[in-house]
Amino acid sequence: MINKEYIELMNRDIDGVISPADRTKLRQFLDASEEGRTYYEGLVLASSELSRLTPELPPADLKRSVMAQVSAYHAGRARYHRPEHNLVDRLFNWLAAHPALGVTSGAVGGALATIIITSASGWLGGPSLVEVTGTLVRQGSPNQQSLVSCSLSAGPTSAVIATDRAGDQVVMRVRINSDGTTPQIRLTFDQSDLSLDRIFEGDRPSAAVDATPGVISISPASGTEYSIIFRDRSESVSSIHVSVSDGSFSADQDIATGISVRR
């Protein structure tokens, strides 16, 4: 059993922060203790092997990816702070104050609001209440696991989507958050190469899914997580088109399955 004091001295010696007096003390100890020498040699070995692990260069596009995400973050913030967001409330308040206009149902009002907002955004050159942020795609061969993830927001509804690929299996995980509206997720894919294998709601097989060839539609409760498993026979399918809608707004995006790079 080596005294803690000497263990500290050995480590300080390796780190180059030992005083001359302590170094002498350590040398005397090592001269006298075979156990101490073995321990010290082990530490020196570990330290020298660690120093041989040279730093690796970061991926060439890391900075570009980071700055793209910074730009996306700014775009998201800019949209979030846009006055157009308040236009819905202002429009409904205005409609409520003018019943003579004949708008009596929320649905009609909502549709009208959508049209007006869309039009206003178009006229003003501004954004709609739809955004796609945080897409993160990694390049990889078909046999490497890859990951893509993104967030799609449509009005008050948002979905976080992540994809894993392992060989011919593509797993898309979807989690939706909504504030009471009935959201819908729709996946569209090329059925000549990609086939739906299974869908899980949480960890149970899901039946409450409308799946027709090439299209899967899900109307989940907020917070529900789905795992949708595809088989990619050719191992060449590069993307699945995903749209998220809350009835008034929809956002859509091609989600890469791990082969191609899209930003």
Partner: peptide, 28 residues
């Protein structure tokens, strides 16, 4: 800082792809 951040992540998680994801997340 991209090199040290990437290398710290790499030594911690060992897979290049994961280290890259972590580095991106950290910078953002």
């Amino acid at each position: 800082y991209q090199q040290p951040v990437f290398n710290i992540a790499l030594r911690m998680v060992r897979r290049h792809e994961d280290a890259e994801d972590i580095a991106q997340t950290v910078f953002l």
